[in-house]
Amino acid sequence: MQALLHAIVEPGFFADGAVQIAATLGGVVAVVAGLIGVFTVIRSQAFAGHALSDIGSAGGSSAYLAGVAPLWGFVGISVLAAAAMEQIGVQRARGRDVATGIVLGVGFALASLFLYLGMTYHNSSGEIPTILFGSVFTLSAANLPLVIGLGAVALLTTLTLYRPLLLASVSPELAAARGVHVRVVGAAYLFALAITVALCDLTIGAILSTALLVGPAAAALRLTDRPHRAALLAAGISLACTWLGLLLAWDSFYWPPLRHGWPVSFFIVTLVLAAYLAAGALARGQTKRG
């Protein structure tokens, strides 16, 4: 029995300090991403979220170049990029895609420059995979207050805007006729989205962070037709994928190549995909029976 348990959970998993920090940071980020992500999916802004996360690589690499904590770089660039997207014309569907695409390209261009300069000045290339693909086990506990603070700002913004945001997502015209300032509401949500993306950049990397933002939300929206239930469900799915991903990554230390461990983000994102597919199968089963 104990052998089986050890095969599933390698000894030392729960006692390890790095695991505890990773589980706490990853858990907070997962919950925020799940809750905020539901509106990203409802508003069809997955592409905007993806662009913000890719641009995060420029933020992370500039922080690396300047020698400051990467989270500051992620947040700074993400909020700036969100402001740029809003200015170019995020309120129109077509303008939104074009604006997002332009900002995305600039983000990658900057990232390539900063990473090159960073490698040259710091004489190491070890930071590159961390910025692009995350490395939650290497994060220090010092990140925790800022992560919780930023997560709270994003959540409070979205919760405050809940009703007008939902109405504007259904129809900007209906919302405007009721006196909702549709553009202000959209911009405020984009700000919350930018912060959330920055948090995901930190834990699972700039390239992969949209998966955590959009995947659990999309899975939850297949299972329920109420936005608030979907938000809670998405937070649960996101948290489960993150924690299970940590566990699998810890176990993979004993998989080939021995004593290296597979990237955590690989497991988290794969689990998110599995959850999305499972939700689809479950939803189809429900409609067949119902």
Binding site: L159, L161, Y162, R163, P164, L166, L167
Partner: peptide, 12 residues
Amino acid sequence: ALGIDGHHLGVA
């Protein structure tokens, strides 16, 4: 229901 108070802040 959003027709009652969709323009108000917060959750109903």
